[in-house]
Every structure is written in structure tokens, then in C-alpha cells.
């Protein structure tokens, strides 16, 4: 069966979507990713959708849902590399994904994840005192 690869990169998981998504594929991704987060105790997820050119309301909603699920499992999600056309489509569909952090490319996404984790650590440390 077709699957989206999930790569472990230090404390993070890297999901690169290189094909056009269909409903079954995104459901499989949801299962695989939540399982991997639990198994690897990952602190962050970087979802690269730069090759994704077509989205519908379902895929758009699932991107938001996956980010929310990851947050429940204490992993921050950053979606990177969204194409302009995809962004416009999602906004027109009324899906502006308010809970999802975004970045322009993998590089700045990684940076964002790191600063978010640092901030989280600092907050935890100060509340422990």
C-alpha cells in the first residue's frame, strides 16, 4: 500500500509529502504519524507540503487535525513550504488553519521548532521552581 514516509531527525519527525494526497493516504498518514510520535517520543513534527499542488477541503481539514493530534501528544507541528495556490485555495475554503504554525521552508521551519521547544523548556523550568 502507498504510504507517506516519516523520517526521524533527532527529536523531530520529518514528513515530506511528495505526491498528491487522496483521502485514504491522508488517513494512513494520520495513523502512522500518531503511532510514530508515541513510539519515538518526538517533540516536534515538520510537515513539508511543498510538492502538494492540489488540496480539497478534506485534505485541508486533515492537515489541521493532524497538527492538533500531535499537540495532544505533546509534539509541536510546523507546516512548511505551502504553495501560493494551495494557500489561496485553503483561505477561499474558509480553512485558515488557526492552530497550525507555518514556515516558508524546511530550514526556517526547523529553526521555528527549535525556538518553540526552547521556550517550552524555559517555561517548564521556571514553573518547576
Amino acid at each position: 500500500m502507498e504510504r507517506i514516509p516519516i523520517l526521524k531527525l533527532g527529536d523531530f519527525l520529518l514528513v515530506t509529502i511528495q505526491v498528491d494526497m487522496h483521502d485514504q493516504l491522508v488517513m494512513t498518514l494520520q495513523d502512522d504519524l500518531t503511532e510514530r510520535i508515541v513510539k519515538t517520543q518526538a517533540l516536534g513534527v515538520l510537515m513539508d507540503i511543498s510538492s502538494l499542488e492540489i488540496v480539497d477541503s478534506f485534505i485541508g481539514r486533515m492537515i489541521g487535525n493532524i497538527a492538533a493530534m500531535a499537540r495532544v501528544l505533546d509534539a509541536e507541528t510546523v507546516v512548511v513550504g505551502m504553495q501560493p495556490a494551495v494557500a489561496i485555495t485553503l483561505v477561499e475554503l474558509g480553512l485558515s488553519l488557526p492552530g497550525v504554525r507555518t514556515a516558508l521552508n524546511v530550514d526556517s521551519g526547523m529553526k521555528l521548532l527549535r525556538t518553540m521547544l526552547d521556550q517550552k523548556e524555559m517555561a517548564n523550568a521556571s514553573s518547576a521552581r
Binding site: 513550504g81 505551502m82 494551495v86 494557500a87 485553503l90 485558515s96 507555518t102 521552508n105
Partner: peptide, 8 residues
């Protein structure tokens, strides 16, 4: 919103 989705 669209710019935010792109990470800006």
C-alpha cells in the same frame, strides 16, 4: 491568512 499559511 493566506500569507500566514505560507509562513509569513
Amino acid at each position: 491568512a493566506a500569507a500566514r499559511l505560507m509562513g509569513a
